[in-house]
Write a protein that binds this DNA or RNA. Structure first.
Lengths: 240, 240
DNA sequence: ATCCCCATTCGTTGGACCAGAATATGGTTA
DNA sequence: TAACCATATTCTGGTCCAACGAATGGGGAT
């Protein structure tokens, strides 16, 4: 079962076959007919008839397009064009995202970079409803029955914070990091307890409510630094 | 509206159906059996028998995994695990037909958030060689023969900047966004010329060399704001 | 306008055939 | 006998076909 081959001499993905050609033809057809987001493709049977291929082959090609975030197929209505390429690409990227110490460090560093400096992107969109939701999520963290639920609530708080900024790319990036962040938070909860995180969140919310940029940055940096501290102690290699 | 949804983080994508569950099960199987790059999966017929699904369904799931860059299927050999999810993500994102103005603004906003605040993550790792390379790339942008090459050099500059921070995950995310950033830069070059970008880059490098955090933030924000400004000013209605 | 029924469409299944590659087989020769 | 090469066999993926179930949108009846 274990492959003994050194490495495939053909690094190229299969560029032949009916499915691949059909994907290319569909792409060309979309471009030729000027279809835009929201338009729908013909039915599978019609496509199979038009291109002279079996419906299973058409389905496989459509599956590729769906995995690529180009179309979204709804039963009875057909395949409609969507604009979710980046989300799909990030999904693909994160499919095998390993939960390793390096990834932990990367993502925690990314969170510091983003969340501490998020205030300016956040403030213009912030509403009272947002603040109420953040407080509800913070309360839910305290009421969580176990560590996993607590970590989930913690993640929900930060994800909601990021979502308020209204940047779909940033939200997608956070979404793909969710499993890693959850693991990170669970470990943190086990070592530090949840009260500290709750207090930090409350301070962050207060700073947001008062529009205090410096206070927000201070509390957020402090909050994230707590999470970073525990695990840098467990990673031997953090240099160059 | 805030009903306690247990698990669906993204209700957009279809998270049901035999194909999706099989993808998840295959993913779990790979993790459970500790399969690594080079190992091979059972045959389609064996999988269909083991999971009680038709071979066509198994094929669709395998097609998804192949589109995700997780496996590469060779005739007679079967599906072997590969480690190409990053390049697969690049393929996915390059596949897109048209880039919407929303995506442009979105990614530019993401870049602002990241790159403007990158200084603190950058400074500890910055070396003289890094500065020299940045200057070389900036010079290359000026010497580029055409707009595409100029945009490529521009992207190389920013990618190198992000890479210096030493965050591999962030660097990969930037690589995934490369096609869109390139398109963005090409359009910018056509309207604004390259001298302005070159001057901004030079100012950024100077700020880095002098360790001037505020100057770096100022010039980077200005630089990225130019790119955003042109685009928001010239957002035409998408091709109907 | 509302409700109900039906036709259409996707989702999935089971089976079939074909081309090609890996392997076993058998014959040939040193 | 043993090494070697050509052939036959046997998998495996790639494609196609026919069919059924479930869900849903639309059209007709009220």
């Amino acid at each position: 079962m274990l492959a003994a081959r050194p490495l495939p001499p053909d690094p190229d993905i299969a560029r032949s076959g009916a499915v691949h050609t059909l994907v290319a033809e569909l792409r060309a057809m979309i471009a030729a007919e000027g279809l835009v987001t929201g338009d729908s493709l013909p039915t599978e049977r019609e496509l199979s008839e038009r291109f002279g291929m079996a419906r299973n082959t058409v389905r496989e090609a459509i599956g590729v397009l769906r995995a690529y975030g180009v179309i979204e197929v709804r039963p009875k209505v057909g395949a409609v064009l969507i604009n979710r390429h980046l989300s799909a690409a990030l999904d693909v990227f994160s499919f095998q995202l390993s939960i390793s110490p390096e990834t932990f460090a990367d993502i925690q560093g990314f969170r510091q970079l983003v969340e501490v400096n998020l205030f300016d992107a956040l403030a213009p969109h912030l509403t009272m409803a947002d603040l109420a939701r953040l407080e509800a999520q913070n309360a839910a963290m305290l009421a969580a029955p176990d560590v996993a639920a607590c970590a989930a609530a913690d993640y929900a708080f930060h994800h909601a914070l990021v979502a308020i900024a209204g940047n779909a790319t940033l939200r997608d990036v956070y979404r793909i990091m969710e499993p890693v962040i959850l693991r990170l938070m669970e470990t943190g909860k086990e070592t530090r307890g949840r009260d500290m995180a709750h207090a930090s969140h409350a301070a962050i919310i207060r700073a947001l409510r008062e529009g205090d940029r410096l206070a927000y940055q201070y509390f957020m940096a402090d909050h994230l630094h707590q999470g970073l501290g525990f695990f840098t102690a467990t990673t031997p290699e953090a240099a160059p």
